[in-house]
């Protein structure tokens, strides 16, 4: 059974991760600091307005300034602001740096749905299933315009940008459903671009992976009813239940798309460099610059080969548009190249 505890009253959303706990600590510090300054300023104003209201026989005092006071209200806020900044940076670093053992899931946003592509080849729409207490890193891109992936319960968000990979990571500690919103305006059905994350206990997660029925327990997302209605209307969340691992899909793709004519997987150079062992290493470019080979670099090398030409090779690679290689296929190709250690 799922119980509904999204928020209580006017409070923050539930704390779905340790990052959320850290975030809330900073938030409440700022909140009470703000209450203090609000009372100081507005309380002071109201107090003065009452005490020094115009009265028969009472004259205003002639005061022009007071340097000590002015210095005080310049210096104290400056110090406080620096503290706030440092604290904010500290929590931010935790929010954006995933642990190295994080499980990767690829996310593709498009008007107006979210696709989730798993390492084992599974593809789901608007539903992300993850195990509890395991760091999950989302590698995200967009098929069309800007979107933004926001999980209030985990306090994380990142824009999802066409032609680029951005990441979000979290480690769920509350089982159940968690809401995902698109938070970058993307046209007509922007407000319908919702998804949910299902956080499962390890045993249930294994059942899900094996395509067996599983039970979901814990909290309920705020749009559960909407998803239920969508399912009742015949929407399926599962696009592909077959499980050909992504790297294998990628291998088939590079063969089918004719990349093998110019690229090998065994380290030998053909017309172009070999894929073997490039991921995570530095590539030397014709203009002398060095770049680290990551998702963004590989995707750019395929979409716009002329943008960064590898040293020692001729710029003869043809560009591949989205019509030729979709973002879903691109993810598989990248996973394949990544697997060639």
């Amino acid at each position: 059974m799922l119980n509904q505890i999204y928020t209580k009253g006017a409070g923050l959303p539930l704390q779905g991760s340790d990052v959320a706990v850290a975030w809330d600590g900073l938030y409440w510090f700022l909140f009470w600091l703000s209450v203090f300054f609000f009372v100081l300023v507005v309380g002071g104003m109201i107090y003065f307005a009452i005490v020094y209201r115009q009265r028969e026989g009472k004259k205003a005092k002639y005061i022009v300034d007071n340097h000590l006071l002015e210095a005080t209200w310049t210096v104290i806020p400056t110090v406080l602001l620096l503290v706030i900044f440092a604290w904010g940076w500290n929590v931010y670093k935790r929010m954006v740096q995933p642990p190295s053992d994080a499980m990767e899931v690829r996310v593709i946003g498009k008007q107006w749905l979210w696709n989730f592509q798993y390492e084992d080849g599974r593809l789901e729409t608007n539903k992300l299933v993850v195990p509890i207490h395991k760091p999950v890193k989302l590698l995200m891109t967009s098929e069309d315009v800007l979107h933004s992936f926001f999980i209030p319960n985990f306090r994380v968000k990142s824009d999802v940008v066409p032609g680029m990979y951005t990441t979000v990571w979290f480690e769920a500690k509350v089982p159940g459903e968690h809401q995902v919103f698109c938070t970058e305006y993307c046209g007509t059905s922007h407000s319908g671009m919702l998804a949910k994350i299902e956080v499962l206990e390890p045993a249930q997660y294994e059942l899900w992976k094996a395509n067996k029925p599983y039970t979901l327990s814990g909290v309920r997302t705020i749009s559960s009813d909407i998803f239920a209605a969508r399912r009742a209307a015949g929407e399926s969340t599962q696009l592909k239940s077959e499980t050909i691992p992504l790297p294998e899909q990628g291998k088939k793709l590079v063969e089918a798309k004719g990349c093998t004519a110019c690229h090998s997987a065994d380290g030998s150079a053909r017309i172009g460099p070999s894929y073997k062992g490039i991921f995570g290493h530095e590539a030397e470019l014709a203009n002398g610059e060095k770049v680290t080979v990551d998702e963004n670099y590989i995707s750019e090398s395929i979409r716009k080969p002329q943008a960064k030409v590898v040293k020692g090779f001729n710029p003869v690679m043809p560009p591949y548009t989205k019509e030729m290689i979709s973002e879903t296929e691109m993810n598989a190709i990248i996973a394949y190249i990544k697997s060639l250690k």
Binding site: L26, S34, F37, V41, G88, W89, V91, Y92, V156, K157
Partner: peptide, 28 residues
Amino acid sequence: FGFIELFTIGGLTGVFLATLAIDVHMTD
């Protein structure tokens, strides 16, 4: 008076948004 009340709230919440971590959740 109204301006000082509203602008103080506007300014203080601006500090929330200037704080990196807080903005990640609050933006948009």
